[in-house]
Design a protein around this nucleic acid. Sequence first.
DNA 1: GTAATTAATGAGCAGTTACTCATTGTCAAT
DNA 2: ATTGACAATGAGTAACTGCTCATTAATTAC
Lengths: 199, 199
Amino acid sequence: MARHKSGDKPKDIRKATIEEVAHIGSTAISVNKIAARAGLSVGTIYRYHRSKDDLLFAVFLDVKRDIHSTMMEAAAEHRIAASRLRAMWFALVDYGFRLPKDFQFVELMNSETRIQFSGNEKLRQIQAEVLAEIQQGVDDGTLVDVNVRTIETVLASPAITLARRVALGRQGIESDEVERIFSLVWRGIALSERPPPKE
Amino acid sequence: MARHKSGDKPKDIRKATIEEVAHIGSTAISVNKIAARAGLSVGTIYRYHRSKDDLLFAVFLDVKRDIHSTMMEAAAEHRIAASRLRAMWFALVDYGFRLPKDFQFVELMNSETRIQFSGNEKLRQIQAEVLAEIQQGVDDGTLVDVNVRTIETVLASPAITLARRVALGRQGIESDEVERIFSLVWRGIALSERPPPKE
DNA sequence: GTAATTAATGAGCAGTTACTCATTGTCAAT
DNA sequence: ATTGACAATGAGTAACTGCTCATTAATTAC
């Protein structure tokens, strides 16, 4: 009853948007260029997104959800809180290593004023799920008994820094270094003196 | 012999650039709007900066140096490595609290591809000075004996996250919370079990 | 005074922007 | 075949972009 959608347009648009930002930066992106990069006409972009801002936010949210689900899938393979948190941490860093441009895009948009973070329900939910995982660690006596937001800051920040560093391609990072950083962070938030979980 | 510069134009330009980015975001800034906000004509901006990119980078570097010198001044009031590092850490967070827009601008530009970080000598020097401070802590047995870059990542990341959170105005942060985060971070990188330095 | 020098201007340039819409292409149901 | 429904197009548009440069304003040296 309708012209078939040839190919996966939303996917093409997402890819082109991320690549365009990675290529010329957020201070010079344009919808026309994104369309050209995606091999589509401008009109098609406006069929999927109401405005430039809408496009950027949609792609941002999409990648954000990608990262989150990757983390949760990694957590699902473990039972005890310590192992789950460790798996999530490494999944986050690994995402930055595997898809640096995607990660960089999210980071850039995270600092954008236009994107109204707190208002969005989906973002709230993602945040809540992460905090719930940390709460588990507090409850079972693995982590120090302080506000989960506090722990989240200490835990997540270095992972983001690490992934961002790779995304910007400034230097290669060995897996030893990643492991060492996790050790130090875990040392800070774990209750006991035991070394951080390995498996 | 020449017409006097009336007022401090570079300062006006810097201020307007930061405010414009804070107001409409990096994805929509324009030189014309920055000029209008500064109460100057476009030509004047191009008298001080060769291009839009040059303008953004210059302001970025300026703020970056501001932040760094604030940190080093804070450190100068102390002798022992632990106290110096603590002072620097709080100075960084405090900068984000006092001048959120400036801090946010730096963070945004930090994630920009266009800004070639590694190439700049000034940025290199700033980085080197910070690492040297940490090295002091390693040398006198205050911090664990690992690569200074590793420690820097664990130490600086949460401070940046904290300052950024304030910059984006998502939530107010009490000084207790800041203190608690520092405690956890310090716990991770300090060699002994002693609590982090207070004075 | 006036000549020399430079700061600052802002209209104007060619090119680009975000966005629209009349048109065309492609399918399933008739 | 014809129709109806919609995906996709891309030339078109007014506004705006980064940037230039002829001109004016302000100052000092002589």
